[in-house]
């Protein structure tokens, strides 16, 4: 039992990260129908900025954190303005290839700015683990969980309450109708990039003390986040969060109870089963048509 709980904790921490990245995917997907392959690079940037501001320059934690998230959101805005906006009339697949190009570019730039080695990032609250019941907890894992839960709640409130959030939801449900009632889509796209990159940076900044910061850490995290988004339903933000946690937990249980060698395969077998049995994802809107 204690083993199971320990696996669960490990899975929850990973899952929280996948959830944040998956959210980033759905936000951009909902406004543009684009699957942003550069999503993982935003996570990497968040971690890298954290390594610089907090790890190297010893800025106060809140300042370093804000700077990491803010700067990455700026990068997101730049990406939208310089790469997505000029091609906004092109096919979705063209836009997706653009995000692949952006991903290669960002990874390459990071390699120059920060070098090829992993960078250490000190934990926010100290390293000493503490024991609860029969399980061991690390302060940073709890921070990761707390941050992502707060981010998800904040985001939900934003979508439900604020006029911008409502506009984004309208836009994702029916872009044409949204335009007809006077919602301008272009600023929304820009905003979705800022929000999505900021969220991913948040994930990167908060996990950096656990995973360290490496210029090529984004690819695999992006892939897992995408799988989580598909699992939960690409058009549902709640689904993304649920998908992220399920993926994280199953991965950890698979590593713990089945085989650590095949744990990545387990996650993706699940993805395939989901696609075949319930294609709209766990919580996705039902817009699947049979041929």
């Amino acid at each position: 039992m204690s083993e199971f709980l320990q696996f669960l904790i490990s899975g929850l921490t990973n899952g929280a990260i996948y959830a944040l990245i998956a959210l980033g995917f759905t936000i951009i997907y909902n406004t543009t129908e684009v699957i942003n392959f550069a999503q993982g690079e935003f996570v990497m940037l968040g971690a890298m900025f954290m390594a610089t501001f907090w790890g190297k320059l010893n800025w106060p934690l809140p300042l370093a954190f804000l700077a990491a998230v803010g700067l990455t959101a700026m990068v997101g805005i730049l990406v939208e303005r310089l790469a997505i906006y000029p091609a906004r009339h092109a096919d979705t697949i063209t836009l997706i290839i653009i995000t692949i190009g952006v991903s290669i570019l960002l990874k390459g730039l990071a390699m120059f700015l920060w070098g090829k080695d992993s960078l250490p990032v000190p934990p926010f609250l100290g390293q000493e683990p503490f024991h609860l019941l029969s399980i061991t907890l690390v302060p940073q894992s709890i921070l990761v969980l707390a941050t992502s839960i707060l981010a998800v709640i904040g985001l939900e409130t934003f979508f439900k309450r604020s006029i911008y959030g409502k506009a984004m939801r309208a836009c994702s449900t029916n872009p044409l109708a949204a335009r007809l009632i006077g919602i301008r889509v272009e600023p929304l796209v820009l905003f979705s990039f800022a929000l999505s990159s900021g969220l991913s940076a948040l994930a990167g900044a908060v996990i950096a003390p656990i995973t360290f910061a490496t210029y090529d850490m984004g690819t695999i995290l992006g892939l897992k986040g995408f799988a989580a988004a598909v699992l939960g339903g690409l058009n549902s933000s709640t689904g993304a969060v649920v998908g992220g946690f399920i993926l994280g937990i199953l991965e950890s249980l698979a590593a713990g109870f089945i085989s650590s060698a095949y744990k990545d395969a387990v996650a993706f077998v699940l993805l395939l089963l989901m696609l075949f049995l319930r294609p709209q994802g766990l919580l996705g809107l039902k817009e699947i048509k049979k041929l």
Partner: peptide, 20 residues
């Protein structure tokens, strides 16, 4: 005899198995 991926971020499941 446990395995981890080159980009894995958490090895505690494997280590728990080892601990047992």
């Amino acid at each position: 005899d446990e395995i981890f991926g080159p980009k894995d971020v958490d090895m505690s499941p494997q280590l728990i198995r080892i601990r047992a």
